[in-house]
């Protein structure tokens, strides 16, 4: 019955990424993108480093980042297909979107697991 298709798997990463992004990203961007730059909060670097080096933090962040990137790839691909009617360029778009997500995931893995 079920053949081994790629589309459902991509949709699952899209959904999981959408959920992860919805739950976790607004508060992170609020703190690090708005509150800290506007000096309404200023946690010191050693505290951040301690939180980030916790293995659980690394794994959760890696999962959120990877899934969120695949969420972007899937949604943006369809937006280009339909919003701009570029379906005939689907190979270029697939490479751009999923390639970008894979590259970003590798970067996230490197930063969170090795550089940190």
């Amino acid at each position: 019955m079920a053949k081994r298709q790629i589309e459902p798997i991509l949709w699952l990463t899209f959904s999981a990424g959408g959920m992860a992004a919805a739950l976790a990203l607004p508060v992170l961007l609020l703190v690090f993108g708005v509150l800290i730059p506007l000096d309404w909060a200023s946690p010191d670097r050693t505290h951040l480093l301690a939180v980030l080096r916790n293995p659980l933090t690394r794994l959760v962040l890696l999962a959120v980042f990877v899934l969120a990137l695949f969420h972007w790839a899937h949604r943006f691909r369809y937006t280009l297909y339909e919003g701009l009617q570029l379906k005939h360029l689907n190979q270029v778009i697939n490479v751009l979107c999923y390639g970008g997500a894979v590259a970003g995931s590798v970067m996230a893995g490197y930063i969170l697991l090795i550089a940190l």
Binding site: A21, W72, G104, I111
Partner: peptide, 23 residues
């Protein structure tokens, strides 16, 4: 659908932050 672009941007921004904190 275009909110996804800002989802991706947020990930990139946070990775830059974490990289800086790590350095």
């Amino acid at each position: 659908e275009l909110t996804s672009v800002f989802v991706a941007w947020t990930v990139v921004y946070l990775l830059l932050l974490i990289n800086a904190v790590a350095e």
